[in-house]
Design a protein around this nucleic acid. Sequence first.
DNA 1: GTCCC
DNA 2: CGTAATGCGC
DNA 3: GGGACCGCGCATTACG
Length: 347
Amino acid sequence: MSPLPKVEPARTSKQKLEDDKRRHALDTLQLVTGVGAVKARNLVTAGCTSIADMRKPEYYSTLTEAQKIGLRFVGQIPEPVTREQAETVLDFIRENISSKFEVHLGGSYRRGAPVSGDMDVILFHPTHVHVPTPNISHSSAFSNRKITGTSPLSSKSGSRMTKAEREASPLIKDVVQPLTQGGLIAATLSTGARKWQGVVRLPEKDKDGQWELMSERVKLVEADKGFFRRMDLNLVPWKSRGAAMLALTGDIEFNKDIRLKAGQLGMHLNEFGLWRWQSNEPEEPEANAEEAQQEGSWELMEADTEEDILAELGVDWIEPTKRNFAYVVGKPTKKKATTVKGKSKER
DNA sequence: GTCCC
DNA sequence: CGTAATGCGC
DNA sequence: GGGACCGCGCATTACG
């Protein structure tokens, strides 16, 4: 009854061994920040099968700047961040940038996790107010497809910044620069007007509760001495603070659930807010001729706190520490699932 | 294909 | 030069 | 075994 073995067991097992090796190499290379499935595949195909191999010039030269940084800190970055460490960094940030900034920690820290994979810092500033409109059409809210670049408005509004604009942006000038000069920021993986991703050296306090001297910290960073961790800085428009806190606190399953719920209600939820589709008023001759052709536009709803947004979605308030279980949301049955979803998906 | 139910 | 598509991370 | 599958910022490369 049992079907015949496929073919040539010897050769099959040999192939299997090779497959396992290849898989292991792929997984190993992807431990480096910035190396994903595609880069790992390309490297392995070229003969690079270990972290050590990646440092060989023939492979190293093919890395992007971010990947080189990932390689530099590959021994440190995977280490988790304790709550105490995250709080230390938060204190340091608050002391080294304008007090006009509101500074929060999101991510698994806010969800109460004892340790986190990185630090998700959320920054608000009263004068940072521009909220970008979603880049998707209304019908796409249900089918979840982005509109193509044929719309001049959509592709233009969020377009790239010039280098000058970037350096003049508040996130760079008022946050990243002081934190770099203060010896906190060790390396930058990516940087823009809204989001900075990079590596920090954990500042240390002496017995008197004083930070190390700034000049000392800068030297230690350059010498790779100390403890280095991943950090993200997110500068969020004032009216988006609720949506951003939701988005940047997670967890991912929770975000999926509430975004799906918004979609089911004909709304759109992203990190900038909760949006309602507004059909074009026939009598709005002021609008550009181009835009008037569109069937409508996304309009930002008033809900600008986490509570308000959840309320609009018909969801009772959920403590951040409870946002680890997808079943809490969108499940009309009051039966509480006993299984944990996506249990150890910490970043 | 992966992840979750 | 510009924009689009892709890769990556969260 | 069967069904569902978010949304976006930034860097790099491909393309015109």
